[in-house]
Amino acid sequence: MDIFKIIDDFQKIDGDAAGRLEFATRRHFMNRIGSKLATVAVPTVFASIVNKAYAQSAKAVDVLNFALTLEYLEDEFYKAGNAAANLIPASDKTIFTQIGKHESQHVAFLVKALGDKAIKKPTFDFQYGGAFGDVFTNYKTFVTVSSALEDTGVRAYKGQAGELLADPQILEYALQVHSVEARHAAMTRRLAATVTSNPAIKGWITGKEGAVPAIYAGEDNMTQGGVDLKGLASKSDAAITEAFDEPLNKTAVLAIAGPFIKA
């Protein structure tokens, strides 16, 4: 059996196969071959490497495309908001310019990383079927939607982390984006508190508090790691729920984001 011929063929299907194989297990693989492990064992070893490379990648592609859908949504939202005349007051322009910049960077990174596996940008309806009809003419609505998008983004990335356990580097990138979305969320929530005159909205999520209540289901969870934390350190339920952000699975996120997506 000609291993290098196989890797060659493999390369034709998957341009980066060798790179990934090397990254993952090539050294280990070659060591084992070098150590004169019986030739009979080689096909098995090789097959397991190939399977592993494909399995990890397919899962990661799925997660990254899911992330890309949400980043496209956010990116388009801020592009439209930042371009709209008389929407964002001068005092808050810097904030939304910075957020918009990050969302564009996230899109660019994911598109580059996914290559020809990247999904196409969907067409969006930011009026959410009419529920947010004045989203780009009324700052209050714009901030409300912004805070909801950011908090949903945080929940979405958190919900996918476990899917990336086998891809540590991709996991790390996802975490690095996740905490940026959380910074955005804190900032936009504080703006939302002002524009909606609801001081109960803080940078962190108390119970299920937020400008669009429907998206905070489960945020009032008091049980962590199987332990009911009620009364922990004599702190209030409010503080305990604030101290932990809760994930959403993909289905729940898409149920929230769905009405924004026309096609």
């Binding site: 945080v154 990335y157 958190k158 982390a161 975490l175 996740h178 905490s179 940026v180 979305e181 959380a182 910074r183 969320a185 804190a186 940078g203 962190w204 962590q224 604030e242 101290a243 932990f244 952000d245 809760e246 994930p247």
Partner: peptide
Amino acid sequence: GKIVSVEARH
């Protein structure tokens, strides 16, 4: 993950 996003909010 539940904790790090709270730290990022802080």
